[in-house]
Amino acid sequence: MKSLHVEGNGLFHRLPIRAKLLLLAALGIGLFLTRDPRLLALGPALGALVWFTLGLPLREALGRLRPVFLTIVIVAAFSFLVNSKEEALLQLLRLTTLMLFAATVTATTTVSAFIEEITALARPFEKLGLVKADDIGLAFGLVVRFVPEVLSRYEAIREAHKARGIKLRPLTLIAPLIILTLREADQIAAAIDARGLRRH
């Protein structure tokens, strides 16, 4: 699985992740403090300036935002019909701004920096006995490691259906897929313990 991080050395790339997340949170609150559309229009303009100068090819820069932008536009159009013109405009500007800056934070932060930050944020909860902070990195690794395995297993089950002339139904695909995947859990857990991966 490819992450959405983009190599680069701009301002956002150099900012520490915690600063970026705090800025993003502040932006999220700040955008709702004003109802002046002229002021809010600065948001998407600035956001677009930052986003489109990150070094992504234009096609990909647009492609990444498409699904989220589409729901923003559709819901704004819906809002335009049932609320007021003004409300719809404000919403469009705010959410587009947030989307652009959020996508920028994602693109300028490596996955390992995120994992380190989340692990650090989880540390205080360790004392409450809720999580082991180091387990988070391990869990992330396991998911990324096993998604391709699940997909190839899905392919194998599909082929087995075909070979036996059984019609493809979601149920007959999903139940064996889950059983076969979860059955590996015991062996994987034994391997984690044997390798002492949780003894930090």
């Binding site: 387990d135 391990l138 869990a139 396991l142 998911v143 490691r145 096993f146 998604v147 395995e149 699940v150 897929l177 889950i178 995947t181 979860l182 590996e184 859990a185 015991d186 994987i188 857990a189 984690i192 313990d193 949780r198």
Partner: peptide, 14 residues
């Protein structure tokens, strides 16, 4: 326990 951690991760992968 480790098994729960693995089950949680495998299900997320699913």
């Amino acid at each position: 326990n480790t098994r729960d951690l693995v089950l949680v991760s495998l299900f997320a992968a699913i």
